[in-house]
Design a protein around this nucleic acid. Structure first.
Length: 480
DNA sequence: TCTGGGGTCCTAAGTCGG
DNA sequence: TCTGCCGACTTAGGACCC
């Protein structure tokens, strides 16, 4: 999907269409998750610190991510992909590999292109958003093709042309080559994929190690036989928080570690899993990051056990100077717990904890990320002010409903006021009104579907529904 | 106002048991 | 019984991806 989060927000908020939109964490340490193509023209891109984005594009709309909305759109897209093949490998909410051959939906370039065209049409019709399609004989090349297709396009790398296609591209194009590896290669005089192919496997292994070197050499030669894997079990579960201000109080640090351990176990249990190794992550004031881990005798999903392991690990970490981020994770996942080993000890420990500390008693904290951390920091230290409370109750970009004015979204809040724009996906750009933050006529609302009365694709691809006007050719598909 | 959150994979060193 | 080797496992860190 193209600029997925930002595009979804533009589809949901007609007044933002054609305007720069930036989605990400809005706290002092937030980063950009997605920038719309309009915002990219100002130089804003994902992973950029939000403060820098605001300097580059001060007039863009800045919104908090709404994962519930993105997930529902993602489900719709994945459902369409599932119609093409049983082998669909999601990479994230907005990207997936599909093995068309295994699905019997395409077996040559012509049929693949036709299916790709139909898919883009279907995605646009069902979600209102544009997606790009890359077609090739391997995952690596399909991914490269889809990058080239963006935004709102389709691209095929024909069999037999792989090497010549890749040769002039920068090494960063290949999956697995990030800033560090690229720098390493550059110092060895290699900047293009062709340089890697010419260097030979032995040289790359010498430079980058066995696994990385060998796989890079194959990739550089256009060879990639990794299969599309439909279902992959998660190998770890973790939660982490970056604090708006560094934590200095050791007691506070410990409290946060225990909270994170509880949240981690909640997620673990939600997935029906247990884990054997507990990992503590600490990012210090100077951004240096260290991890400590402890392997238990058997897998557990007991909050008290994970909490205590994490607290023990914290003992071995020097936090003087301040803590910027804390994280707790569990790896070595299993589908069972070693109750015979843990039930008794954990039971004793749980009985020793005050009931309000039990995981079940925790308030839901599913907004994810540092906003939650910011609120706790402010609240716990008694520095919570009206601004933060308003931002918490009325997050920028979230849906609201007003008794008189209907559906809208929060444009901003502050000084005891919340500003709402009243519009919804199908409506023309709406009007703005301001209310008191505690106005009883105003309440939070669920996101509305981006498309109403979408055509029925339940028998696609065997037969296509009548396309709506304008969706007939890929070039005419609209890009939000 | 520098630098999120949730993951995966790889490497290397140390330990331990056979 | 002593020594060496090997493999498995644990731990920490780094790189990468979306």
């Amino acid at each position: 999907m193209d600029a997925f989060y930002a595009s979804a927000e533009q589809a949901a908020k007609p007044s933002l269409r054609g305007k720069p939109v930036v989605v990400g964490g809005l706290g002092p340490r937030g980063v950009v998750a997605t920038a719309s193509y309009e915002a990219r023209r100002f130089g804003v891109h994902s992973a950029m610190p939000m403060a820098q984005a605001r300097r580059l594009a001060p007039n863009a709309a800045y919104l908090v991510p709404r994962f519930a909305l993105y997930r529902s759109v993602s489900d719709q897209v994945m459902e369409l992909l599932g119609r093409l093949s049983p082998l669909v490998e999601p990479l994230s909410l907005d990207e997936a590999f599909v093995d068309l051959e295994a699905g019997g939906t395409a077996d040559d370039t012509a049929s693949a292109l036709e299916i790709g065209r139909q898919l883009r049409e279907a995605i646009e019709a069902v979600t209102g958003l544009s997606g790009s399609v890359g077609l090739a004989g391997s995952k690596m090349l399909a991914k490269i093709a889809s990058e080239e297709a963006k935004p709102d396009g389709i691209r095929l790398i024909a069999p037999g042309t792989e090497r010549e296609h890749l040769a002039p591209m920068p090494v960063r194009t290949l999956p697995g080559v990030g800033p560090a590896t690229a720098d390493h290669l550059r110092r060895a005089g290699m900047t293009t994929v062709d340089d890697l192919a010419e260097a030979g496997e032995a040289e790359l292994v010498r430079l980058l190690g066995k696994a990385h070197g060998a796989s890079l050499h194959r990739m550089a030669n256009g060879l990639d036989d990794r299969p599309v894997v439909a279902e992959r079990d998660a190998k770890s579960v973790s939660v982490e928080d970056t604090f708006d201000m560094d934590l200095h109080d050791r007691v506070r640090v410990r409290t946060e570690v225990e909270r994170l351990a509880d949240r981690c176990v909640q997620r673990l249990r939600g997935a029906g899993r247990s884990g054997r190794t507990v990992v503590l992550k600490v990012r210090r004031y100077d951004f240096s990051t260290l991890t400590r881990s402890e392997t238990l005798r058997g897998p557990t999903d007991d909050p008290a056990v994970v909490r205590e392991a994490a607290a023990r690990l914290l003992e071995s970490v020097d936090t003087t100077g301040g803590v910027r981020l804390l994280g707790v994770g569990v790896t070595g996942l299993a589908d069972f717990t070693q109750e015979d080993l843990f039930a008794q000890a954990a039971g004793e420990r749980a009985a020793a904890v005050p009931p309000e500390d039990a995981a079940e008693a925790r308030p839901q904290d599913d907004t994810g990320g540092h906003e939650g951390a910011a609120e706790r920091e402010a609240g716990q230290q008694g520095r919570g002010n009206a601004e933060q409370l308003a931002a918490r109750r009325w997050p920028a970009g979230h849906d609201v409903c007003h008794e008189v004015h209907g559906h809208g979204w929060v444009q901003g809040s502050g000084v005891g006021r919340v500003t709402v724009r009243f519009e919804e996906p199908g409506s023309p750009p709406g009007r703005v009104r301001t209310f008191r933050v505690d106005d009883p006529a105003l309440r939070a609302a669920e996101p509305l579907p981006l498309v109403r009365d979408a055509p029925d694709y339940s028998s696609w691809p065997a037969s296509r529904p009548k396309s709506r006007s304008g969706a007939g050719s890929p070039g005419a598909a609209s890009s939000p």
